[in-house]
Design a protein around this nucleic acid. Structure first.
Length: 878
RNA sequence: GCCUGGGUGGCGGAACUGGUAGACGCAAGGGACUUAAAAUCCCUCGGUGAUUAUCACUGUACGAGUUCAAUUCUCGUCCCAGGUACCA
């Protein structure tokens, strides 16, 4: 209320501060988002990737969850029983980093963040069933993950092997790849070493073929994601070949996709971790060189990304093997570009046919022998400049000379098999999933190590193995678990020995996110991971929405987990997510000060000359590239500020309007202002309509366009029907909310042209129809706003319980169509004509057009093409 | 490096299976209303040129090609982003 008469002034603008809490309260009080299994209704499970509780909701979350909320509200109005849960991916490294940096505890930090973020999400008006909320760091959740681990262990789906971790000697701790910066520890700059540890793995490779095959049976997924997954699995068909080691009664096994090039194999390469590297070099004069090389490589990153950073190098290990095709003795090397985890950890090197081998051979002066000659060329190993990897004619290959290399592949594989030194083989790039983390803030692995019995699973009735939440992290980031006697000391469940030791590693946090969506179906269930009846009804997820950065790992692990549960007989499906939408990132320009580096938006002040200056030192601020929003670059927008200034609906509207969901979104302050303007434009339109149209006497028009007498009313009515169709298609088929909103804007613009004061009864009735539908169509996008106006129009209850509008197919088109005329593909004339006019007549009118005539002149007409689709086009070719 | 996307006005984007390039919005400029400002409403708005109410040429990262017709399809090049197995 204010001095100018209160209500009237207030009515001129949408007031989110009053309206939004009112409807959030209404939804809560009437339990509109609470759902239960209902066999009489078709279910719809919509899920957005749950957030890591980093502290505050960021704009990326707002965007992700707004997209989901629109679809949920739309599907509800379409009559589905929609489940829409939310929870927290609450274990993970940032909690440990924050604990060290801010001298707090990971648990305290995490729980505080969860409360803060939950409050923010509630203010956004999202339609979550909060009764289903879960946090993965709660023992009620992770106990079932431990239970599953035991089942997998029992079935041989989980196993232990030695593998490498990044180790910082100074901090005495394991580092994530992200914590290694240029081979050095991010905290202390010590050079990172590779350390071998016994770790747990899940046998995802057992399902490699099944995961691969089903990539083609996910029509609801973007192709780019299934293609990335296929490439990640990386099936290759080739041969496993045995090379006899010279002077030793043992074979060296290699995997190759090019058995046809075996005559060109002039040396061998082993991964530095390959057991034969040490065995074979022992006692030779190469031993010292090999040891030094292996030591050197141990400080190099062994990730695929890392491996590319180093120059390809290697060292002769002092042993030879026999090429079974040529019978020649060839040297064995160990090289840093050979991965132990792929194939057999050893390769036969054919420098003429592989670029890496070629570079290596040139560097160490090894033989390059051409065995596949490209058509019409004559390559020479001594002079060629790069490897030839294509197919061609076989040369230098004994009895196979002159054959086509493609054909030789088959024949030579058989020949090698007959000789007993090879067989056909399939290899996958996919490796087993290492889940052991030498970290504190994660799910404890439920096994006990006994000096007598070895690895002993924790008995089921002892679950959960609780993470001691009161424990403090070590100063340099290490896990305290191995040093907590009360946690790590255990009695062997098998033999009763008192000096057994609990496993003090925790699980990769991707394990939690691989099955959380099943837990949502029965979040408080105590009899297992989930209530089978609930999962039977709700699962699988019908629509999953999240960032494209998860395209491979999270989504592949989830698909794997469903296969595990399926094999264990716990569920009857294999694919967790029927449809997938991968949204783009939210970006913003960065600002840098020469003195202070990256600046927050509020640290740059606009000066008189329009330039920006640093508020601290006055230096000129440089506006940099538009990149993904991140705290470290300080190019962030705080959703809280937006909520305060514009409210939830305007924030939601802008997120949807600025770009289609799958594209990156560039944040613009002015754009938000524009969304605010649109919302108020609709508000004024609605208030004016209600004010000037007697709703008691005039009802919204429901007939066919042809029943309307005035041309203006007819056109507006058709526009309204087209809008309903467009918005429905955009939401339902493509999730292109930006164009849906544009369509509504067009309708609103068309309504603004109408003079309501002088409008007749017919027009008023069409205006009411249009207005009512605008509110229904926008209600999933700006729900509080639409609820309020819908109520003011005299409707009872929530707009959510109203059905989604239908359009009339008989009222989508006017009876005039536009014809565009081209001469040689260039636009020369346009005219409108009755929709029923025959093609021959259209041609005639087009040819007769003055402007067309100008271009035709005396030239002979070769062809006239008439296209009658949405618009009519005539192209005259001369 | 490898895998996957993307590149359209001053800006975000639109153009559905090849058929009017620039819908809708932002910014900018002009006008109306107002004592004034804000708000609101209306108009103009890719570039170049001219005989400027009109018209021509040109234009979707760059270079070729297919086609009556290419932002859309094919090949090559450049730039940007995401993933690359311990960030989630």
């Amino acid at each position: 209320m204010d001095a100018f008469g209160g209500m009237d002034i207030m009515e001129e603008r949408y007031s989110p501060g009053a309206v939004e809490p009112k409807w959030q309260e209404y939804w809560k009080k009437n339990e509109l988002f609470k759902v239960a299994e209902d066999p009489t209704k078709e279910k719809y499970y919509l899920l957005e990737m749950f957030p890591y509780p980093s502290g505050k909701i960021h704009i990326g979350h707002v965007r992700n969850y707004t997209i989901g909320d629109v679809v949920v509200r739309y599907k509800r109005m379409k009559g589905f029983n929609v489940i829409h849960p939310m929870g927290w991916d609450a274990f993970g490294m940032p909690a440990e980093n924050a604990a060290i940096d801010n001298n707090t505890h990971p648990a305290a930090w995490t729980y505080a963040n969860i409360s803060a973020m939950r409050a923010q999400l509630k203010k956004m008006g999202f339609s979550y069933d909060w009764d289903r909320e879960i946090a993965t760091c709660r023992p009620e959740y992770y106990r079932w993950e431990q239970w599953l681990f035991l089942k997998m262990l029992e079935k041989g789906m989980a196993y232990r092997k030695e593998s490498f971790v990044n180790w910082c000697e100074k901090c005495q701790t394991v580092l994530a790849n992200e914590q290694v910066e240029q081979d050095k520890c991010w905290r202390c700059s010590q050079v990172v070493q590779q350390k071998k540890l016994w770790q747990w793995f899940f046998r995802i490779t057992d399902y490699a073929e099944d995961l691969l095959v089903h990539c083609d049976q996910l029509p609801g997924w973007p192709d780019k994601v299934t293609v990335m997954q296929k490439n990640w699995i990386g099936k290759s068909i080739g041969s496993e070949l045995k090379f006899q080691i010279d002077g030793v009664g043992e074979d060296l096994e290699v995997f190759t996709t090019r058995p046809d090039t075996i005559f060109g194999a002039t040396f061998m390469c082993l991964a530095p971790e390959h057991p034969l590297v040490e065995t074979l070099s022992r006692g030779t004069d190469q031993q010292a060189a090999v040891d030094a090389f292996v030591q050197k490589v141990s400080s190099q990153e062994r990730s695929a990304d890392g491996i590319e950073k180093y120059e390809k190098e290697g060292v002769f290990i002092g042993a030879h093997c026999i090429n079974p095709a040529t019978g020649e003795k060839i040297p064995i090397y160990t090289a840093n570009f050979v991965l132990m985890g792929y194939g057999t950890g050893a390769i036969m090197s054919v420098p003429a046919g592989d670029q890496r081998d070629f570079d290596f051979a040139r560097k160490y002066g090894l033989d390059i022998r051409v065995v596949v000659q490209p058509e019409g060329q004559n390559l020479d190993g001594a002079t060629m400049e790069e490897a030839y990897t294509g197919s061609g004619v076989m040369v230098n290959s004994g009895q196979f000379d002159g054959m086509d290399s493609q054909a030789a592949m088959e024949v030579m594989t058989d020949w090698l098999e007959e000789k007993g030194c090879g067989k056909k083989a399939i290899s996958y790039r996919l490796r087993d999933w290492g889940i052991s983390r030498q970290r504190y803030w994660g799910t404890p692995i439920p096994v006990i190590h006994c000096p007598s019995c070895g690895v002993v699973p924790v008995p089921e009735e002892d679950l959960p193995i609780r993470l001691p939440e009161e424990a403090n992290l070590l100063a340099k980031g290490g896990s305290p678990l191995p040093f907590l006697d009360y946690f790590s000391k255990a009695t062997c469940p098998s033999c009763g020995r008192k000096d057994a030791k609990r496993d003090t590693d925790t699980m990769d946090t991707f394990v939690e996110s691989s099955w959380y969506y099943l837990r949502y179906c029965s979040p408080r269930y105590e009899g297992g991971m989930f209530d089978p009846a609930a999962v039977q009804y709700w699962a699988p997820v019908d629509q999953y929405i999240g960032g494209v950065e998860h395209a491979v790992l999270h989504l592949l692990y989830s698909r794997y987990f469903m296969r595990v549960l399926n094999t264990l007989g716990l569920i009857d499906f294999k694919e967790p997510f029927t449809r997938l939408l991968t949204q783009g990132m939210v970006c913003k320009e960065t600002m840098t000060c020469p003195e202070h580096g990256f600046l927050f938006p509020e640290e740059a002040e606009k000066q008189d000359n329009e330039a920006l200056a640093c508020t601290r030192c006055g230096s000129e601020v440089e506006v940099g590239r538009v990149i993904k929003m991140s705290k470290s670059k300080k190019n962030v927008v705080d959703p809280n500020e937006l909520l305060e200034r514009y409210g939830a609906d305007v924030t939601r509207l802008f997120c949807l309007f600025a770009a289609p969901p799958e594209r990156d979104l560039e944040w613009s302050e002015d754009g938000v202002e524009g969304s605010n303007r649109f919302v108020n434009r609709v508000w004024r339109l609605a208030i004016e309509c209600m004010d000037k149209i007697d709703a008691g006497a005039i009802a919204p028009f429901k007939g066919a366009a042809s029943d309307l007498e005035s041309q203006d009313a007819k056109e507006l009515y058709i526009k309204a029907n087209q809008t309903i169709k467009k918005v429905t298609d955009d939401i339902d088929k493509s999730f292109h909310f930006n164009t849906a909103i544009s369509a509504v804007m067009e309708l609103v613009n068309a309504m603004y042209v109408v003079e309501i004061d002088t409008a007749d009864r017919e027009m008023k009735s069409v205006l009411l129809f249009s207005l009512e539908n605008i509110l229904l169509l926008l209600s999933p996008i700006i729900p509080h706003f639409c609820e309020e106006l819908f109520e003011r129009m005299g409707n009872k209850g929530s707009i959510l319980e109203h059905a989604w509008p239908d359009f009339r197919t008989d009222s989508l088109e006017t009876d005039e169509v536009l014809v565009v005329v081209q001469v040689n593909g260039k636009l020369r004339a346009k005219f409108t004509i009755g929709a029923q006019v025959e093609e021959a007549e259209i041609k005639e009118i087009a040819m007769a057009d003055e402007r067309v005539q100008k271009y035709l002149q005396e030239k002979p007409v070769k062809k006239i093409i008439v296209i009658r689709k949405k618009q009519t086009l005539v192209n005259i070719v001369v």
